[in-house]
């Protein structure tokens, strides 16, 4: 078996890399794939919190690299889904504790036993990024429809294109607010795709449910009612090669909106 190694990166911090990693990983595992999530944000680990696994971590990626434990000992199984495992980052060390070759080696080993290895990349374009990308052959660039995030994503895309081992990269647009797009206050999905000229793999709406799901340590893909959860499940299906249409994210209109629309139509007739 040869698994696929996908790095989840963004350049800018706070756009939802870790949330995306946790949700895509969980969704892929729920669909029956064997998945490992690697947190490479050494010193600032968070992926364990989002999965609710913070109390189960004994060994970290640094322990593996420094040979204090075997790789399989450091893999923490998810509470609900035995298909999903986490290789946590060390919290008390920094990004120089692991180098690119070591990460590449870990990915090579995991590829033999798992379908998907998702590498959660730290923010920035320094050593942490270079390490996280080292073992990957695919990338998902997470961005939001904000200028700074799009600019950073463009920089990341430039760096990914320069790396031969990255065969393909896709764009995931996070925290999309359809009502702001409709009022022309926010860049639309099409705008961002055009500016970055990259292929889109998912559009995730801004969802307050993300906050509660993070608080509970329960990825939002487990919530069947959530629109963001649905969007993440669709991303997982697209990764598996399915052709899934993009969701219509527009919220059902409120009373005032309906009245406004009525007047717009009336004005057109008069």
């Amino acid at each position: 078996m040869t698994g696929r190694v996908i790095v989840i990166t963004s350049g800018k911090g706070g756009v939802g890399k870790t949330t995306t990693s946790a949700n895509i990983g969980t969704a892929l595992a729920k669909a029956g794939n064997k998945v490992v999530l690697i947190d490479t944000d050494i010193g600032l680990r968070n992926l364990d919190l989002l999965l609710g696994l913070e109390n189960r971590i004994v060994y970290t990626i640094v322990d593996v690299v420094e040979e204090r434990c075997k790789l399989r000992q450091a893999l923490v199984k998810d509470k609900k889904n035995p298909n999903l495992s986490l290789l946590a980052a060390a919290q008390t060390r920094d990004k120089t504790s692991v180098n690119a070759d070591q990460l590449k080696d870990i990915c090579e080993q995991l590829k033999k036993k798992y379908d998907f290895i998702l590498v959660d990349c730290p923010a920035g374009i320094e050593q942490g990024f270079q390490n996280a990308v080292a073992g990957a052959s695919e990338a998902i660039v997470v961005t939001t429809p904000e200028m700074s995030a799009v600019r950073d994503a463009d920089r990341i895309i430039g760096l990914l294109e320069a790396r031969e081992e990255i065969e393909s990269y896709k764009l995931l647009l996070n925290r999309v607010r359809p009502n702001l797009i409709e009022s022309n206050d926010m860049m639309s999905v099409e705008d961002v795709v055009e500016i970055l000229s990259a292929e889109l793999i998912g559009v995730i709406p801004e969802d307050t449910g993300i906050i509660t799901s993070t608080n509970k340590g329960e990825p939002i893909v487990n919530d069947d009612e959530s629109l963001a959860g649905q969007a993440y499940r669709n991303v997982a299906r697209r990764i598996m090669g399915e052709d899934v249409p993009f969701l219509d994210l527009r919220q059902p209109k409120g009373f005032v909106e309906k009245i406004k629309n009525l007047f717009t139509k009336l004005k057109g007739k008069v």
Binding site: M147, V150, M187
Partner: peptide, 28 residues
């Protein structure tokens, strides 16, 4: 009801797009 639409100024979205295109050109 048309207050928003009648403000026919350049929208925030257009400003963002144009600024971004320029800055990316320089970055690249």
């Amino acid at each position: 009801f048309h207050q928003a639409e009648s403000k026919d100024k350049e929208s925030a979205k257009d400003v963002a797009c144009n600024r971004l295109k320029l800055v990316l050109m320089q970055d690249r």
